[in-house]
Design a protein around this nucleic acid. Structure first.
Lengths: 173, 173
DNA sequence: CCGTAATTTCTGTCTTTTCTGAAATTTAAA
DNA sequence: TTTAAATTTCAGAAAAGACAGAAATTACGG
């Protein structure tokens, strides 16, 4: 697939942001390419377009599938896999946030629960420190629960709430 | 400074999460240590407690200061720097979100603006692709603006809204 | 100013991550 | 089956990042 200058620019930018986003350059570039591509692409097309090893595409696609950002389709009379990315930008954000919560928050939540549970037996740690850990646990639990609730709300509702901006505050006054 | 088993566990966990959070192990461990520490610590104390090079502490502290998570204090009659971390967990979250937005979102927003502005001159890129980029720009602009608004709201208001969970939806019905 | 404590910068080493190319495996048509 | 295309796995090369220790700089008391 031939990249136009604009697409080229986006793909390169995605690649540059990759390390900040916590994925490898290949993963980010492939995602950019599939997100922009007007039609699904085969692994070979991706490898050729981005000049990366075919095997690299295979592994990167696996990761994008784990994030639920890319899926496979097929063409009649063609055994190759055709990959396409989620095009709905709102859904893309949701998938990324879900993934990040699972990887970046949940393990810590788990650890804080254990640490707090064990605090009784621990007579060395100053009360002040235990309290800080407990406070943190409570805060993260609350945030986590809030996120799970928001996640269930229909998109139009969220959109309306978002567009109200700070005006939502009036309901709590 | 001597770590109690509970503190030890937290510091190690922070270190393990570091790569997922996008910082180095040292940065995460130092942050954990300073967050839990009942009193400010010198760079030497940090280096000794965590068994890392003194220079490493210097660089890591710089990064934590760039995130606005750590500040310097002094003791009378002691020229050494004493470092302390923000203890308010809500503020810590805010600083991290601000930092992430600045590093992970703003550069992309910038790029999307430029790409969209240049779209007129670009006659190669399919309309469909240009549209996808424009939609993405609009979405990210909207999210970004929303975040900036929310950021200005007083904490008690946000807390109340958070505790309402999905009940906030009733104001848009 | 001088000497020393404290901190930072720099350079090279070590570790980790990413990526490639080859080999192995899977898949499906013949 | 057999065969060939398609995909995945794997081992090692290459690149990036983290870190230690030395050297340089800064800050301060005398």
């Amino acid at each position: 697939m031939q990249l136009t200058p604009t697409m080229h620019r986006c793909v390169l930018h995605w690649g540059e942001m990759a390390s900040r986003w916590g994925v490898s350059r290949s993963v980010a570039q492939i995602h950019a390419l599939l997100f922009l591509a007007p039609a699904p692409l085969t692994a070979d097309e991706i490898a050729e377009t981005l000049n990366v090893a075919r095997s690299n595409v295979s592994v990167s696609i696996k990761e994008l599938q784990a994030w639920d950002l890319v899926s496979v389709t097929h063409q009649l009379g063609d055994r190759r896999d055709y990959f396409q990315a989620r095009k709905d930008i709102w859904e893309v954000l949701t998938m990324i946030m879900d993934g990040r919560k699972k990887r970046e928050v949940d393990p810590t939540l788990q650890m804080l629960r254990e640490a707090t549970a064990d605090a009784g037996k621990d007579h060395e740690t100053p009360e002040q420190v235990k309290q800080r850990i407990a406070d943190m646990l409570e805060f993260v639990e609350e945030l986590s629960g809030w996120y799970d609730q928001i996640r269930t709300m229909p998109r139009p509702t969220l959109l309306k709430l978002m567009r109200m901006g700070t005006k939502v505050a009036k309901i709590v006054t």
